[in-house]
Protein backbone atom coordinates (compact mmCIF):
# COMPACT_ATOMS: atom_id res chain seq x y z
CA UNK A 1 0.00 0.00 0.00
CA UNK A 2 2.47 2.64 -1.16
CA UNK A 3 -0.17 4.43 -3.20
CA UNK A 4 -1.02 7.19 -0.69
CA UNK A 5 2.62 8.22 -0.27
CA UNK A 6 3.12 8.44 -4.03
CA UNK A 7 -0.12 10.37 -4.40
CA UNK A 8 1.01 12.87 -1.87
CA UNK A 9 4.22 13.20 -3.78
CA UNK A 10 2.58 13.89 -7.15
CA UNK A 11 0.34 16.50 -5.57
CA UNK A 12 3.38 18.09 -4.00
CA UNK A 13 5.01 18.16 -7.45
CA UNK A 14 2.02 19.97 -8.98
CA UNK A 15 2.02 22.38 -6.04
CA UNK A 16 5.71 23.17 -6.52
CA UNK A 17 5.20 23.64 -10.26
CA UNK A 18 2.37 26.08 -9.52
CA UNK A 19 4.53 28.08 -7.11
CA UNK A 20 7.37 28.18 -9.63
CA UNK A 21 4.99 29.23 -12.41
CA UNK A 22 3.51 31.98 -10.24
CA UNK A 23 6.97 33.34 -9.46
CA UNK A 24 7.88 33.21 -13.17
CA UNK A 25 4.67 34.93 -14.31
CA UNK A 26 5.07 37.52 -11.54
CA UNK A 27 8.64 38.18 -12.65
CA UNK A 28 7.54 38.74 -16.27
CA UNK A 29 4.73 41.03 -15.23
CA UNK A 30 4.31 42.15 -11.61
CA UNK A 31 0.67 42.96 -12.39
CA UNK A 32 0.05 39.25 -11.77
CA UNK A 33 0.25 39.85 -8.01
CA UNK A 34 -2.36 42.58 -7.97
CA UNK A 35 -5.32 41.73 -5.78
CA UNK A 36 -7.79 42.17 -8.64
CA UNK A 37 -5.93 39.66 -10.79
CA UNK A 38 -5.63 37.12 -7.98
CA UNK A 39 -9.35 37.42 -7.19
CA UNK A 40 -10.33 36.96 -10.82
CA UNK A 41 -7.98 33.97 -11.01
CA UNK A 42 -9.80 32.35 -8.07
CA UNK A 43 -13.14 33.20 -9.66
CA UNK A 44 -12.08 31.41 -12.87
CA UNK A 45 -11.45 28.25 -10.86
CA UNK A 46 -15.06 27.84 -9.76
CA UNK A 47 -16.79 26.49 -12.88
CA UNK A 48 -13.92 24.38 -14.21
CA UNK A 49 -13.29 23.10 -10.69
CA UNK A 50 -16.87 22.01 -9.99
CA UNK A 51 -17.00 20.12 -13.29
CA UNK A 52 -13.59 18.59 -12.64
CA UNK A 53 -14.85 17.05 -9.36
CA UNK A 54 -17.33 14.99 -11.38
CA UNK A 55 -14.80 14.02 -14.02
CA UNK A 56 -12.37 13.00 -11.29
CA UNK A 57 -14.93 10.62 -9.80
CA UNK A 58 -15.66 9.12 -13.24
CA UNK A 59 -11.95 8.67 -13.89
CA UNK A 60 -11.32 7.01 -10.51
CA UNK A 61 -14.03 4.50 -11.44
CA UNK A 62 -12.07 3.69 -14.61
CA UNK A 63 -14.27 5.66 -17.01
CA UNK A 64 -14.06 8.92 -18.89
CA UNK A 65 -16.67 11.57 -19.61
CA UNK A 66 -16.59 14.02 -22.52
CA UNK A 67 -20.32 14.77 -22.42
CA UNK A 68 -20.51 17.05 -19.37
CA UNK A 69 -20.15 20.43 -21.17
CA UNK A 70 -23.06 19.46 -23.44
CA UNK A 71 -25.04 18.34 -20.38
CA UNK A 72 -24.18 21.57 -18.56
CA UNK A 73 -25.51 23.68 -21.41
CA UNK A 74 -28.61 21.53 -21.87
CA UNK A 75 -29.48 21.70 -18.15
CA UNK A 76 -28.76 25.42 -17.98
CA UNK A 77 -30.72 26.34 -21.09
CA UNK A 78 -33.76 24.18 -20.31
CA UNK A 79 -33.89 25.63 -16.80
CA UNK A 80 -33.63 29.22 -18.03
CA UNK A 81 -36.25 28.73 -20.72
CA UNK A 82 -38.58 27.21 -18.13
CA UNK A 83 -37.98 30.20 -15.83
CA UNK A 84 -38.58 32.73 -18.62
CA UNK A 85 -41.63 30.94 -20.01
CA UNK A 86 -43.38 30.61 -16.66
CA UNK A 87 -42.05 33.75 -15.01
CA UNK A 88 -40.45 31.60 -12.32
CA UNK A 89 -37.88 33.21 -10.05
CA UNK A 90 -35.86 32.07 -7.12
CA UNK A 91 -32.41 30.60 -6.80
CA UNK A 92 -32.67 27.23 -5.06
CA UNK A 93 -35.35 25.77 -7.34
CA UNK A 94 -33.57 26.62 -10.62
CA UNK A 95 -30.28 25.21 -9.36
CA UNK A 96 -32.02 22.07 -8.13
CA UNK A 97 -33.69 21.74 -11.52
CA UNK A 98 -30.44 22.17 -13.49
CA UNK A 99 -28.75 19.64 -11.22
CA UNK A 100 -31.61 17.18 -11.67
CA UNK A 101 -31.50 17.47 -15.47
CA UNK A 102 -27.75 16.85 -15.31
CA UNK A 103 -28.25 13.78 -13.12
CA UNK A 104 -30.86 12.38 -15.51
CA UNK A 105 -28.51 12.84 -18.47
CA UNK A 106 -25.67 11.29 -16.47
CA UNK A 107 -27.87 8.27 -15.80
CA UNK A 108 -28.13 7.82 -19.56
CA UNK A 109 -24.32 7.55 -19.71
CA UNK A 110 -24.38 5.08 -16.83
CA UNK A 111 -26.98 2.94 -18.58
CA UNK A 112 -24.84 2.57 -21.71
CA UNK A 113 -21.61 2.09 -19.76
CA UNK A 114 -23.00 -0.43 -17.29
CA UNK A 115 -25.80 -2.27 -19.02
CA UNK A 116 -24.53 -2.18 -22.59
CA UNK A 117 -20.87 -2.42 -21.49
CA UNK A 118 -19.70 0.05 -24.12
CA UNK A 119 -16.42 1.96 -23.89
CA UNK A 120 -17.18 5.18 -21.91
CA UNK A 121 -15.42 7.46 -24.40
CA UNK A 122 -17.66 6.34 -27.26
CA UNK A 123 -20.80 6.40 -25.12
CA UNK A 124 -20.15 9.94 -23.91
CA UNK A 125 -19.21 11.14 -27.40
CA UNK A 126 -22.61 9.86 -28.50
CA UNK A 127 -24.61 11.31 -25.60
CA UNK A 128 -22.79 14.65 -26.01
CA UNK A 129 -23.90 14.83 -29.66
CA UNK A 130 -27.37 13.76 -28.61
CA UNK A 131 -27.66 16.46 -25.95
CA UNK A 132 -26.16 19.29 -28.03
CA UNK A 133 -28.16 18.25 -31.08
CA UNK A 134 -31.37 18.20 -29.06
CA UNK A 135 -30.55 21.52 -27.39
CA UNK A 136 -29.64 23.39 -30.57
CA UNK A 137 -31.96 21.58 -32.97
CA UNK A 138 -35.11 21.41 -30.86
CA UNK A 139 -34.90 23.84 -27.92
CA UNK A 140 -33.21 26.79 -29.58
CA UNK A 141 -29.97 28.50 -30.53
CA UNK A 142 -30.59 32.07 -29.40
CA UNK A 143 -28.67 33.71 -26.57
CA UNK A 144 -30.41 34.80 -23.40
CA UNK A 145 -28.85 38.20 -22.77
CA UNK A 146 -28.56 40.20 -19.58
CA UNK A 147 -31.86 42.00 -20.21
CA UNK A 148 -33.72 38.69 -19.97
CA UNK A 149 -31.57 36.84 -17.45
CA UNK A 150 -33.48 36.28 -14.19
CA UNK A 151 -32.25 39.03 -11.81
CA UNK A 152 -32.22 36.74 -8.76
CA UNK A 153 -29.68 34.46 -10.43
CA UNK A 154 -27.45 37.40 -11.33
CA UNK A 155 -27.80 38.76 -7.83
CA UNK A 156 -26.94 35.42 -6.30
CA UNK A 157 -23.89 34.82 -8.49
CA UNK A 158 -22.72 38.40 -7.94
CA UNK A 159 -22.52 38.00 -4.16
CA UNK A 160 -19.10 38.83 -2.82
CA UNK A 161 -17.22 37.65 0.23
CA UNK A 162 -15.19 40.79 0.57
CA UNK A 163 -14.84 43.89 -1.51
CA UNK A 164 -12.37 46.73 -1.71
CA UNK A 165 -11.40 49.53 -4.03
CA UNK A 166 -8.34 49.23 -6.24
CA UNK A 167 -5.71 51.90 -6.91
CA UNK A 168 -7.59 53.32 -9.90
CA UNK A 169 -10.86 53.44 -7.96
CA UNK A 170 -11.94 50.17 -9.56
CA UNK A 171 -14.09 47.78 -7.58
CA UNK A 172 -12.32 44.59 -6.53
CA UNK A 173 -14.33 41.76 -5.02
CA UNK A 174 -13.85 38.11 -4.17
CA UNK A 175 -16.77 36.05 -5.42
CA UNK A 176 -18.85 34.18 -2.86
CA UNK A 177 -19.10 31.30 -5.32
CA UNK A 178 -15.64 30.23 -4.18
CA UNK A 179 -16.90 28.73 -0.88
CA UNK A 180 -19.56 26.84 -2.86
CA UNK A 181 -16.78 25.26 -4.94
CA UNK A 182 -14.70 24.54 -1.84
CA UNK A 183 -17.73 23.06 -0.07
CA UNK A 184 -18.53 20.78 -2.99
CA UNK A 185 -14.87 19.74 -3.15
CA UNK A 186 -14.89 18.89 0.55
CA UNK A 187 -18.10 16.89 0.13
CA UNK A 188 -16.69 14.89 -2.79
CA UNK A 189 -13.45 14.34 -0.88
CA UNK A 190 -15.27 13.01 2.20
CA UNK A 191 -17.51 10.89 0.02
CA UNK A 192 -14.61 9.32 -1.86
CA UNK A 193 -12.39 8.72 1.15
CA UNK A 194 -14.75 8.02 4.01
CA UNK A 195 -17.85 6.24 2.71
CA UNK A 196 -18.51 2.76 1.36
CA UNK A 197 -19.74 4.35 -1.87
CA UNK A 198 -16.41 6.08 -2.31
CA UNK A 199 -14.63 2.83 -1.64
CA UNK A 200 -16.76 1.16 -4.29
CA UNK A 201 -15.73 3.85 -6.80
CA UNK A 202 -12.04 3.16 -6.14
CA UNK A 203 -12.63 -0.61 -6.17
CA UNK A 204 -14.49 -0.45 -9.49
CA UNK A 205 -11.63 1.48 -11.06
CA UNK A 206 -8.95 -0.68 -9.51
CA UNK A 207 -10.26 -4.05 -10.64
CA UNK A 208 -13.81 -4.48 -11.81
CA UNK A 209 -14.01 -8.22 -11.31
CA UNK A 210 -12.44 -8.07 -7.88
CA UNK A 211 -14.88 -5.33 -6.90
CA UNK A 212 -17.80 -7.46 -8.02
CA UNK A 213 -16.58 -10.49 -6.08
CA UNK A 214 -16.00 -8.35 -3.02
CA UNK A 215 -19.72 -7.64 -3.12
CA UNK A 216 -19.77 -4.05 -4.34
CA UNK A 217 -22.89 -3.10 -6.26
CA UNK A 218 -21.36 -2.16 -9.61
CA UNK A 219 -24.60 -0.90 -11.16
CA UNK A 220 -25.27 1.46 -8.26
CA UNK A 221 -21.66 2.67 -8.31
CA UNK A 222 -21.68 3.33 -12.06
CA UNK A 223 -24.96 5.23 -11.86
CA UNK A 224 -23.56 7.21 -8.95
CA UNK A 225 -20.36 8.34 -10.69
CA UNK A 226 -22.00 9.36 -13.99
CA UNK A 227 -24.96 10.87 -12.15
CA UNK A 228 -22.59 12.89 -9.98
CA UNK A 229 -20.67 14.11 -13.03
CA UNK A 230 -23.91 15.07 -14.78
CA UNK A 231 -25.40 16.74 -11.70
CA UNK A 232 -22.28 18.79 -10.98
CA UNK A 233 -22.15 19.79 -14.66
CA UNK A 234 -25.79 20.92 -14.63
CA UNK A 235 -25.21 22.94 -11.47
CA UNK A 236 -22.00 24.47 -12.83
CA UNK A 237 -23.67 25.25 -16.16
CA UNK A 238 -26.35 27.41 -14.54
CA UNK A 239 -23.82 28.99 -12.20
CA UNK A 240 -21.57 29.80 -15.17
CA UNK A 241 -24.22 31.74 -17.06
CA UNK A 242 -25.36 33.47 -13.86
CA UNK A 243 -21.79 34.67 -13.31
CA UNK A 244 -21.27 35.97 -16.85
CA UNK A 245 -24.87 37.23 -17.35
CA UNK A 246 -25.15 35.56 -20.73
CA UNK A 247 -26.65 32.17 -21.61
CA UNK A 248 -25.29 30.97 -24.94
CA UNK A 249 -26.26 27.37 -25.76
CA UNK A 250 -23.09 27.05 -27.92
CA UNK A 251 -20.92 27.89 -24.91
CA UNK A 252 -18.30 25.61 -23.29
CA UNK A 253 -17.67 23.62 -26.48
CA UNK A 254 -14.30 21.93 -26.17
CA UNK A 255 -14.14 22.53 -22.42
CA UNK A 256 -14.06 18.78 -21.77
CA UNK A 257 -10.46 18.70 -22.92
CA UNK A 258 -9.37 21.38 -20.45
CA UNK A 259 -11.14 19.67 -17.57
CA UNK A 260 -9.78 16.21 -18.38
CA UNK A 261 -6.33 17.76 -18.69
CA UNK A 262 -6.71 19.36 -15.26
CA UNK A 263 -7.80 16.08 -13.66
CA UNK A 264 -4.93 14.14 -15.25
CA UNK A 265 -2.55 16.92 -14.26
CA UNK A 266 -3.73 16.45 -10.70
CA UNK A 267 -2.45 12.87 -10.68
CA UNK A 268 -5.60 10.87 -11.50
CA UNK A 269 -5.05 7.80 -13.65
CA UNK A 270 -7.19 7.23 -16.73
CA UNK A 271 -7.05 3.50 -15.92
CA UNK A 272 -8.96 4.17 -12.72
CA UNK A 273 -8.36 3.48 -9.08
CA UNK A 274 -6.23 6.52 -8.48
CA UNK A 275 -6.89 10.22 -7.98
CA UNK A 276 -7.64 12.80 -5.32
CA UNK A 277 -9.72 15.92 -4.87
CA UNK A 278 -6.75 17.98 -3.71
CA UNK A 279 -4.72 16.94 -6.75
CA UNK A 280 -7.59 17.80 -9.06
CA UNK A 281 -8.06 21.22 -7.48
CA UNK A 282 -4.35 21.90 -7.95
CA UNK A 283 -4.56 20.70 -11.56
CA UNK A 284 -7.51 23.01 -12.20
CA UNK A 285 -5.67 25.92 -10.60
CA UNK A 286 -2.58 25.25 -12.72
CA UNK A 287 -4.53 25.12 -15.99
CA UNK A 288 -6.72 28.14 -15.22
CA UNK A 289 -3.67 30.15 -14.17
CA UNK A 290 -1.81 29.35 -17.39
CA UNK A 291 -4.85 30.21 -19.51
CA UNK A 292 -5.47 33.45 -17.63
CA UNK A 293 -1.86 34.54 -17.55
CA UNK A 294 -0.95 34.29 -21.23
CA UNK A 295 -2.14 37.84 -21.78
CA UNK A 296 -0.29 39.07 -18.71
CA UNK A 297 2.85 37.40 -20.07
CA UNK A 298 2.34 39.24 -23.39
CA UNK A 299 1.76 35.97 -25.26
CA UNK A 300 -0.85 36.01 -28.01
CA UNK A 301 -3.99 34.12 -26.96
CA UNK A 302 -3.82 32.10 -30.19
CA UNK A 303 -1.06 30.14 -28.40
CA UNK A 304 -3.46 29.08 -25.66
CA UNK A 305 -4.40 25.74 -27.23
CA UNK A 306 -0.79 24.86 -28.00
CA UNK A 307 0.17 25.56 -24.39
CA UNK A 308 -2.74 23.51 -23.03
CA UNK A 309 -1.89 20.66 -25.40
CA UNK A 310 1.76 20.65 -24.36
CA UNK A 311 0.71 20.62 -20.70
CA UNK A 312 -1.58 17.62 -21.32
CA UNK A 313 1.17 15.73 -23.13
CA UNK A 314 3.76 16.52 -20.47
CA UNK A 315 1.44 15.58 -17.61
CA UNK A 316 0.31 12.33 -19.22
CA UNK A 317 3.88 11.40 -20.16
CA UNK A 318 4.95 11.92 -16.55
CA UNK A 319 2.06 9.86 -15.14
CA UNK A 320 2.72 7.14 -17.74
CA UNK A 321 6.35 6.98 -16.64
CA UNK A 322 5.27 6.90 -12.99
CA UNK A 323 2.80 4.08 -13.65
CA UNK A 324 5.41 2.10 -15.54
CA UNK A 325 7.98 2.51 -12.80
CA UNK A 326 5.50 1.21 -10.30
CA UNK A 327 4.47 -1.71 -12.52
CA UNK A 328 8.06 -2.62 -13.36
Amino acid sequence: MTAPAVLRRSEAVVFLVIVAAMLAIGAINPAFWQLGNLFSLLRSNVITGIMALGVLTVMISGGIDVSFPAFAMTAMYLTLRWMLAGGHGGVAVPFAMATAIGIALGALNAFFVHSVRMIPLIVTLGTAALARGFLLGVVGTSNINIDRMPPQLIGFAGTELLATTGPGGAHIGLTAMLPIYLGLALAVHLLLRHTMLGRAVFALGGDREAARRAGFDLARTTYFVYGLAGGLAGFAGLLHVSMIWLANPHDLAGMELDVIAAVVLGGASIFGGRGSVVGTMLGVFMLVMVNNSLIIMHISTTWQRVVVGVIIIAATALTALRDRRRAG
Binding site: F271, V306, V307, G309, I313, T316
Partner: peptide
Amino acid sequence: ITPILATIGTGQVYVG
Protein backbone atom coordinates in the same frame (compact mmCIF):
# COMPACT_ATOMS: atom_id res chain seq x y z
CA ILE B 1 0.59 7.17 -23.00
CA THR B 2 -3.04 6.05 -23.35
CA PRO B 3 -4.18 6.83 -26.92
CA ILE B 4 -7.14 8.90 -25.66
CA LEU B 5 -4.99 11.25 -23.61
CA ALA B 6 -2.08 11.38 -26.04
CA THR B 7 -4.30 12.33 -28.97
CA ILE B 8 -6.39 14.78 -26.91
CA GLY B 9 -3.11 16.52 -26.10
CA THR B 10 -1.64 16.43 -29.59
CA GLY B 11 -5.04 17.35 -31.07
CA GLN B 12 -4.92 20.55 -29.00
CA VAL B 13 -1.39 21.21 -30.23
CA TYR B 14 -2.30 20.65 -33.91
CA VAL B 15 -5.43 22.81 -33.71
CA GLY B 16 -3.43 25.35 -31.72
